[in-house]
Design a protein around this nucleic acid. Sequence first.
DNA 1: TATGAATGAGGTTTCATTCAT
DNA 2: GATGAATGAAACCTCATTCAT
Lengths: 198, 198, 198, 198
Amino acid sequence: MARLKKKKVRDKIVASATKLFAKQGYFCTSVNQIAKNAEVAVGTIYVYFDSKDEILIELFIDYFRKLMEEIEEKFQNSKTEPLTKLLNGLRYMVNKLSEDIDMAKVFLVELRQSNKALNFIAPKIQKDYEKLIKKLLDEAKDQGLLNENIDTQVISISTFGLIETMLFDWLNRGYSKEKLIDNMEKTARYFVNGIRNI
Amino acid sequence: MARLKKKKVRDKIVASATKLFAKQGYFCTSVNQIAKNAEVAVGTIYVYFDSKDEILIELFIDYFRKLMEEIEEKFQNSKTEPLTKLLNGLRYMVNKLSEDIDMAKVFLVELRQSNKALNFIAPKIQKDYEKLIKKLLDEAKDQGLLNENIDTQVISISTFGLIETMLFDWLNRGYSKEKLIDNMEKTARYFVNGIRNI
Amino acid sequence: MARLKKKKVRDKIVASATKLFAKQGYFCTSVNQIAKNAEVAVGTIYVYFDSKDEILIELFIDYFRKLMEEIEEKFQNSKTEPLTKLLNGLRYMVNKLSEDIDMAKVFLVELRQSNKALNFIAPKIQKDYEKLIKKLLDEAKDQGLLNENIDTQVISISTFGLIETMLFDWLNRGYSKEKLIDNMEKTARYFVNGIRNI
Amino acid sequence: MARLKKKKVRDKIVASATKLFAKQGYFCTSVNQIAKNAEVAVGTIYVYFDSKDEILIELFIDYFRKLMEEIEEKFQNSKTEPLTKLLNGLRYMVNKLSEDIDMAKVFLVELRQSNKALNFIAPKIQKDYEKLIKKLLDEAKDQGLLNENIDTQVISISTFGLIETMLFDWLNRGYSKEKLIDNMEKTARYFVNGIRNI
DNA sequence: TATGAATGAGGTTTCATTCAT
DNA sequence: GATGAATGAAACCTCATTCAT
């Protein structure tokens, strides 16, 4: 029971921080604001986190690990053709992030901050993503779906960027989620068409 | 002569700010640091700029306007095939930005900050870019180089994202400029291949 | 207990501010000085007050409300003749203010500053004072002690001014408190003689 | 001609300072503002005045000297009864100050500032005023118009205060100049009635 | 005389963090 | 664990004054 409550307080803080970071950015959000919004005292935050930096970091790691696990599971279980898997994966990620706008905003903006703490996290996230994609592409190569001299690393980087870009544009212009998914589908298809062996 | 000196001081401030914003980010750079690095007094900064925000904004506008003008000129003067023009343009932008690493960093990171100031600038920059690209793509469509149902807006957004992504990856991993250009070439070719009418 | 301490810190800040505002004026007193003199950290001041302005405002309101309540009580309880009440009231106010020189100085000087904050406070104080005096004078008129065509509003304004002037002169020239009270008695008597119906 | 221009520039500065001090107060007015408003360069101000303080001081002295000279002349030339002269003098001063609202504001507010510079000037002004009034009252005493044990010093102080108060109230509440003059007449008559020997 | 860019000390305020309760 | 008053370094910005032109 105590355990449960502990979880609840921590979650309230994370939710509050995510929301405020998304709305105002990391630097324009004060720990006092996070506390007030989470309906706890400032001191309480420091019971669960060592510093303001830590909130951001843990928030990221938690979210991204879950996302990666979900994707990986999707990739492993299915027997679909690898390039279709890739399209599905990209759609899934965009869809998932679009369901938690606050997280998406934090993900897009703060991941690029040259914040001391994040300097350490951001590359790790991207590396995890790349490993996933490269495995898929190697599989595709093995099946002869990709030309031999296609650079799989470049594709990893690019697809990550396309996800970011599409989300960022959507957040900025505020159109419907359907339009976002449609845009992502299109750009992913263009790109995959470009690398597919014909 | 006085005019010349005035220009010089302003330029020193802009250079100092760009460098520091790139290294530490906007929020972790203090006006005092900018002043010290530019070898002027703090007060001098406020002779040329109304606020710290203004430095960032003017710095962006100045740089981006120049970049856009150069690209536009390249596009207009040449009689090359439109899709090749697009490839050339993307290469040119990456090349240009890679030559001023500090500016590139600021461009990639701060443009996403939801700062009051930037909320105003970022969309304008992207809109300028889009207009340029769409004109090119419409030209390509007219010449039958693109399939009729290709979404030119999505392509504009995507190519902007690919430039950002490639640069960001390069800055993070620190490989050679040749490798960066090569990566950009590849991803651009993949993408253009995907939309080209065959 | 915590409550008690909280009250004490606030009081220390108010006392420190009053003293320094009196000695140096509002603008020549820095928040750092107030903090140092109150033996608290600068930040502590902003726990209790929103801004430097607020300190001045709250300090005034607190003091003046108390003073008005005391006078009102004196006026209501006594069955003395109204014009004697007036003389007593004026003497009481001068006496009271002379006992807290710092407060008197702030009262005399800062009340005239056209500070945004004070523009709001000063009129309120004077209105409260006027209401009190006019009630007394109307009473006197009813008893036939004042000529019918005496302007009670003018008298309110004037007596307020006489208090201010006598105090200001005393502070400037630094004579004994007895002399101050004596001067106030005299001028009040001259004035009341001038309006009394004979 | 050069002389004339010199005068003109100085006057422009004084007029600008008076206006701004009246509107914003001494401390909230910057030298740059004064310069801009006077349509001269900042440096020019320091050609004519040693410091910001000096502007305020000279502005006061200039104005008050003229005012006193005018009153003195009025008092000397006339053969009117002294107490009527006093009433006339008070009316004249209020009338004069009410014609230059900016100067009146500065006069009323800044004269009380514990500004280092003015600490020296304010008493001098009041002393000049007192000397004038006491001379008049002594004359009245000699003619048997005042009771022997009337305190002429107190009256000097009080009448100065009444002028200030009436003006201050007028500025605060913003009624017509006729009403101001009427109020001053009334309060002066009440007061003089109170001291007149009957 | 007149200019106005340059100065830098000092102003108010914020805020991540601590610690006694 | 939970609290929130207290801290003080450091942030941005102002402004009276100077001085080379």
